[in-house]
């Protein structure tokens, strides 16, 4: 498996799209930090990049890479290698490269300019989001043999987690607005890692003061060490479950 990771990394580091991603992230983070003399404002603007761009690039890049490497994966399967090792190898390779891209593009500027607790939460959430969307991409990719359909499923997943879920949530909140929903929203946020990441970072930022009673309830939960452990565990589950399902499917998949 380590050999496969090694060769995937060797291949992917020459990938121009990955390079473009690093450049995009660096430009936006350095740009936002330079433009805003206030560091916390820079982080605040970067939050949009983290919650929208990072998941999108992670899931799309991975899906496209998977389908472009399809024949290579076939070649590997014909070798005396276990399928689970092949998939996990490719997964780790892609995941590590995207993590590296994230850390170079966003991590470095944040450590240079910020280096506060918010920054570390930001990097932790970003890393977890990257891995979650790489996992989801593998799930989308093994579900179909067709590249276009795979990319379509990935786009749908991204769209679901960044927008549709919140839309449904808003409607649910409206429908049950007569009930105290703060605790329910904590539970519901666990169903969407993007929301979870956003809340975790927001609560560490000044802006959380705007959140009033809802924020107080959140703070009570996410501010406690148990809450942090739970939310990070939930994120890790979001990393593990899609790739575990993808593995099960891949084991039986006809190539």
């Amino acid at each position: 498996m380590y050999k496969i990771i090694k060769y995937v990394l060797h291949d992917i580091f020459r990938n121009r799209i990955l390079l473009a991603y690093v450049v995009l992230l660096s430009l936006s983070s350095f740009g936002l930090f330079m433009m805003n003399e206030d560091v916390s404002k820079g982080i605040s603007s970067l939050l949009t990049v983290l919650l929208i761009v990072v998941p999108m690039v992670s899931i799309l890049f991975t899906t496209i890479y998977f389908f472009n490497s399809y024949e290579f994966i076939e070649l590997l399967v014909a070798q005396p290698l276990k399928r689970s090792n092949i998939l996990l190898g490719v997964y780790s390779g892609v995941g590590l490269s995207l993590l590296a891209a994230f850390w170079v593009g966003i991590g470095l500027p944040i450590i240079i300019f910020d280096g506060t607790v918010v920054g570390w939460y930001f990097l932790l959430s970003g890393s977890l989001l990257t891995m979650i969307f790489v996992s989801l991409a593998f799930l989308a990719s093994v579900l179909t043999r067709d590249k276009t359909r795979g990319i379509g499923i990935s786009m749908l997943l991204w769209f679901y987690f960044t927008l549709i879920f919140d839309g449904i949530l808003l409607m649910v909140l409206f429908a049950f607005s007569d009930y105290p929903l703060e605790k329910l929203t904590i539970f519901l946020s666990c169903l969407n890692p993007v929301d979870l990441a956003r809340i975790m970072i927001l609560l560490k930022m000044d802006i959380s003061a705007l959140m009033g009673y809802t924020g107080a309830v959140f703070n009570q939960f996410f501010g406690s060490s148990l809450g942090i452990v739970i939310s990070i565990s939930v994120m890790l589950i979001w990393v593990a479950v899609p790739i575990a399902i993808a593995l099960r499917i891949f084991e039986r998949k006809n190539l």
Partner: peptide
């Protein structure tokens, strides 16, 4: 294989 495809950048 019938059509051999390999990592592009390798």
């Amino acid at each position: 294989p019938q059509i051999g495809r390999y990592p592009d950048n390798m």
